[in-house]
Design a binder for these strands. Structure first.
Lengths: 222, 222
DNA sequence: CGGGATTGTTTGGGATACCAATTTGGGATA
DNA sequence: TATCCCAAATTGGTATCCCAAACAATCCCG
């Protein structure tokens, strides 16, 4: 794989895992020393990450994109029509085997699993459901939305009741797809998205001080 | 503005206007001479265009993204839930002035207007409606979808009846938004999207030979 | 005359050099 | 001591350089 893609993936991981704080400045020279590559591939990776809106320009400088809490409502509003469409199409198109694959993924999350696992599966579930729709545009849009939610979701998986609630909701959605009941699946999906939004907003309000203390830029919290 | 953005915008325009044929190879050295800049900003522009899926890698080479007719169905399927949501939200949120602005835009397209004008307005209408929804994610998704449709749409605006049909449908959608009738607006939007899809597929089938003759890569036509 | 190895050319990936602009730190001065 | 100003360092933007891989044309041998 090209060096640029390696740097892109590593940097992406550092940003999404909050190793690099939201709002933190990224100097090309610092990245150069971090990744032991020259500025050429680093700049390519930054341009790429900019298009995913994980980094952003601040004047001439690069910064890690801040977490914009104001986006959470709009994001839910965006996800609802897409994910309801996705589950309906999944009912019509997904094979038993496809659904089984997603079930297995959910099963890997036992109570004792590490937070990272819950976080990953919670994101991937939605992308995999989108994939069952067979529509690549829906997949891409959902994947992008989940990426934008990803960093805020660390707060959700922090508490056990919260993540197990989400897990149960995922199960129910999948159950209705399996039972070929598109209306119920769509209703569950809608409820899940609004529930998640509310859980996240509550967590963020509670944890805002903690985030600020860690130097994270969190904007748009009303 | 930075040179990279200038190159990006120019190249984007050349691709969308079909000055550069779909599937055409882009060598960095050729672009270097075209834009009289060095490879550094050119490569940044290419990385950026790649994320918009207007250029693509073909092995180590860059090519203009082919027109994938197979995408047209998936694109319509993707747009319907988003645009119905957009018009519903527009009914709830758009001001008289906002709606008036879109009306004016439609009015600029008189019968004698050049094809470029019809093409531009036909794209912008959908983006502007999305903007009335107040949801930036919907705007971006619709804008992306319209970009992907853009090149195929040159065929639609080619014939007068076709573009006037689309224009009437746009009028009707906007009328229902103005009348604050979300259900009818959503129904019109759905019909318009499926109609457009069918018109495009028909035009492409008829014109396929012509496109091939111009050396355009058009793939996925069933 | 045909096929395959070989060599020369072109390409993109990466590194580095240079420049202009911005930031910064320190020292002189009021 | 506070403030202002200038020099030096740092930064991102661009140009250029080098290299390895891909491709093509050519030449040699059967």
């Amino acid at each position: 794989m090209s060096q640029m893609l390696q740097i892109h993936d590593q940097l992406r991981e550092m940003i999404l895992s909050l190793d690099l704080g939201p709002g933190e400045r990224l100097s090309e020279r610092w990245l150069e020393s971090q990744f032991e590559g020259s500025r050429t591939p680093i700049r390519a990776a930054l341009v790429r990450l900019e298009s995913e809106e994980l980094v952003r320009r601040d004047g001439r400088n690069w910064i890690v994109a801040p977490i914009d809490v104001g986006e959470l409502e709009a994001l839910a509003e965006f996800r609802i029509p897409l994910e309801t469409t996705a589950v309906r199409l999944a009912c019509a198109r997904a094979s038993e085997a496809d659904i089984g694959g997603v079930e297995e993924m959910l099963d890997t999350c036992q109570s004792g699993a590490p937070r990272e696992e819950w976080h990953r599966v919670g994101t991937d579930f939605h992308v995999e459901i989108a994939r069952l729709s067979g529509n690549p545009f829906i997949v891409k849009a959902i994947a992008g939305a989940m990426t934008r939610l990803s960093r805020a979701r660390w707060l959700e998986v922090w508490t056990e009741p919260s993540r197990e609630q989400a897990w149960r909701e995922h199960r129910r959605i999948l159950g209705f797809i399996k039972a070929n009941d598109p209306d119920s699946a769509a209703r569950e999906a809608t409820d899940h998205i609004t529930d998640t939004r509310d859980r996240l907003l509550r967590s963020l309000k509670e944890d805002r001080r903690g985030l600020r203390m860690r130097g994270f830029a969190v904007i748009g919290l009303r």
